[in-house]
Simulated assay, not measured.
Amino acid sequence: MIKFSLKCGDGHAFDSWFKAGQAFHDLKQRQLVLCPVCGSSDVEKALMAPAVAVRPPVAQAAPPPEAQAPDPTEKLKALRSKIEASSEYVGERFASEARAMYLGDIPDRPIYGEAKPQEAKALIEEGVPVVPLPFIPSRKSN
């Protein structure tokens, strides 16, 4: 996994994790890297300071396993499981379902699904509270 500092065309700065450097370029080319603030797909890598690993002194013992930070991959898996267990998957109907709930046309309920970049941007501009998920729904990953 690699973490990039990103910036959209409107100047919003944010960080995101990618499987590899090429994954960012592939997703960007398909306009799937979106600004979480404005939904813009005009996203570029921002200047970053290099991550320099510092070796701990030899005499220092490793902290006990319970004190070590959890693996980011495990955190994503746990988040995915929680969302899938407590929300309804609506697939490509996500934008229309979210909008209908926001307008009060249908009862509120937790949902997740897919939206095209322009649909997500329209939802954000309308004030519909949506958040991009850091994973592809399992119904799309098989």
Rank of each mutant, 00 (worst) to 15 (best):
D42P: 01
K19Q: 11
K121R: 15
V43K: 08
P64R: 14
E97L: 02
F94Q: 04
S41R: 10
K19R: 12
H12A: 13
V33G: 04
Q29I: 01
I2G: 11
E66K: 07
K45L: 15
N142W: 03
P137S: 05
K77F: 00
A100S: 15
S87E: 01
A98E: 11
E44C: 04
K45N: 10
K45S: 12
I111M: 05
N142T: 06
D108S: 13
D15G: 13
R109L: 09
L76W: 00
Q29D: 05
G91H: 08
E44V: 10
G104R: 03
P64C: 09
I136Y: 02
S86M: 04
Q118V: 08
D105L: 14
S16T: 03
E126D: 15
A85I: 01
L6Q: 09
N142F: 06
L133D: 05
S96G: 03
K116C: 06
P64Y: 12
S141C: 05
A23G: 02
P56Y: 13
K75L: 00
S138D: 10
K140E: 11
R80D: 00
R80L: 01
P107F: 08
A51G: 11
A62Y: 05
K116M: 09
A13I: 07
G113C: 13
K140L: 14
P70T: 00
P137H: 02
F135Q: 00
C8Q: 04
D42A: 12
P129V: 06
K77A: 01
L6T: 09
V130Q: 04
G21A: 11
I124K: 15
K140Q: 10
A46K: 14
P107L: 08
Y89I: 04
M1E: 08
M1V: 12
A122Y: 02
C35L: 08
L133G: 03
I2L: 14
Y102M: 05
G9M: 07
L123G: 06
I124Y: 03
I136Q: 04
S16I: 00
K121E: 15
P129I: 05
S141K: 14
S138K: 11
R109W: 06
F4K: 12
I124C: 02
K3V: 15
S16H: 09
E125N: 09
A98V: 12
A122M: 11
K3L: 14
P72A: 02
W17K: 03
P117S: 09
R93D: 15
L27C: 04
I83V: 15
Q22Y: 05
I136M: 09
K28G: 04
A120K: 05
F4Y: 15
P36N: 08
E126W: 07
L27Q: 11
G127S: 04
P110K: 14
E88I: 03
P36W: 02
S5Q: 15
A20R: 13
S5R: 15
V52S: 08
P132F: 05
E97D: 12
A53W: 10
G21I: 06
R30N: 12
A20Y: 10
A20I: 03
I83R: 00
L6M: 09
S87D: 01
D26M: 07
Q60A: 15
F14E: 09
V90M: 03
Q60Y: 10
A120D: 01
V37E: 15
P65S: 10
A115Y: 03
K75P: 00
Y89H: 13
K140V: 03
R80T: 00
E119R: 07
E92C: 09
H25N: 13
F18K: 02
A115C: 06
F4N: 12
C38G: 07
G127C: 05
V43Q: 13
Q22M: 09
